[in-house]
Nucleic acid binder design. Structure first.
Lengths: 123, 123
DNA sequence: TGACAACTTGTACATTTGTACGATATTATA
DNA sequence: TATAATATCGTACAAATGTACAAGTTGTCA
């Protein structure tokens, strides 16, 4: 239980961290490859972002060959919880319903998806 | 159709803008009152944020007495659309389903809420 | 083993963001 | 009509953010 007061994440850091989770672990190179070309960001920038993520305690790295392989040190769930909470707070004043409604209407969601959700509801 | 390339909103700006929508229109004073005391932010700061929101084109103001009354110039829907989109992009790679799932599980949502959502789905 | 390619490190730097003070203007009030 | 109370305006300023170059380091391959 080391996780405590994690510093906040900037949008770009969040974007990169998500890829690390998705890949389980990754080098700067690999992260760059996962980013859409349209993102138009240099290797050096991704590297800086990873450096900051490590400094903030969200990832660590081991060395493989001459490259660093970055590994998450924080559960995705933890960050999602906080991020979603903050987001709903500032955009909807804390009420998640409006967000769900918005998604139901504009999120390319169908009735089946909704049906699936019912199973998840913690009743 | 003036709305075009609106500058991005910072978290704090978003927070304040939401209150303007909620109140329909408001003075610095009124916005301050709506903010939870725990937010611990001064009048001057709120004023700066409103100033920036106006400069960015999200609100305008009229003068009432000696105070400014700020009024939204952008539809809430417009900002929600963009904000939610960006958010889902960076935290979930663009797929809204995981977010819905997360909310169904941890968003204090009940089965009825879900049932309601079905009516909204654009099928 | 020497040069090249792939990396990391150190640094930089313009903007944006969050926060707020002090001076000035304006309105209500005693 | 002085004054107090309330506002705005101009400014400031440190920290965070986004972006990236240049120099130094280390495997690798001919």
């Amino acid at each position: 239980m080391v996780r405590k007061k994690l510093p906040s994440l900037s949008p770009s850091e969040t974007e990169i961290l998500r890829l690390i989770w998705q890949l389980n672990q990754a080098t700067v190179q690999e992260v760059c490859e996962k980013l859409p070309v349209s993102r138009n960001i240099t290797y050096a920038t991704v590297q800086t972002l990873l450096r900051r993520l490590e400094k903030k305690g969200y990832i660590k790295h081991k060395t493989k060959g001459k490259a660093h392989v970055f590994i998450p040190t924080v559960q995705q769930e933890t960050v999602i919880k906080r991020s979603v909470g903050d987001f709903i707070q500032r955009l909807f004043g804390g009420d998640p319903i409006p967000l769900m409604q918005y998604l139901a209407q504009h999120g390319k969601i169908n009735t089946e998806d909704i049906e699936e959700l019912k199973k998840l509801v913690d009743k």
